[in-house]
């Protein structure tokens, strides 16, 4: 009985924390001047796999990532591909053999905001509360629970 009460208490304490994380949206952003207003999740996948090379205006997509160890990058990778970054390394080895580089890696969310604001065709992700008027939100993604 005591064990059951302890378990129920543990669930009650942890559930709001996990729910809060699961509900935290991620904003997919591009430059405020970009005429594109929305992007589907399937198109976003193709952009981050470097299979989609150009936007509707004919500009080259320049996708941006956070470093592999960053929790935002790991959550984004799980949300988009259901894979962690290290589980995609085989894919990127094959692309490297074909002369295709993976998305550019930036040091922080602020770095992504600065780069996106000033570079045509660039696309990145930051937490929704970090978005400001330098950029435009194309899509909101609800993050899965961190692995």
């Amino acid at each position: 009985m005591a064990m059951r009460i302890a378990y129920a208490l543990l669930v009650a304490i942890l559930l709001p924390w996990f729910s809060a994380r699961a509900a935290e949206p991620l904003a997919i952003i591009t430059a405020a001047a970009n005429p594109l207003d929305t992007l589907s999740l399937d198109d976003l996948k193709l952009v981050y796999l470097r299979k989609s090379q150009m936007d509707t205006e004919g500009n080259r997509w320049l996708p941006l990532n956070m470093p592999v160890t960053d929790s935002l990058r790991r959550d984004f990778s799980l949300a988009l591909f259901s894979l962690l970054p290290e589980e995609q390394e085989d894919y990127w080895s094959v692309q490297y053999f074909n002369g295709i580089s993976p998305p550019k890696v930036m040091a922080s969310e602020e770095a992504i905001l600065r780069f996106v604001a000033s570079t045509t065709g660039s696309i990145g992700y930051v937490r929704k509360q970090k978005v400001d008027n330098r950029v435009k939100v194309l899509l909101l993604i609800t993050l899965p629970t961190a692995k």
Binding site: P67, E89, W92, S93, Y96, S101, P102, K104, V105, M106, A107, S108, A111, R114, F115
Partner: peptide, 12 residues
């Protein structure tokens, strides 16, 4: 801001 200039094995 760009951290990918560091050489990584298998990426060139």
């Amino acid at each position: 801001d760009d951290v990918e200039s560091i050489y990584r094995l298998g990426s060139g």
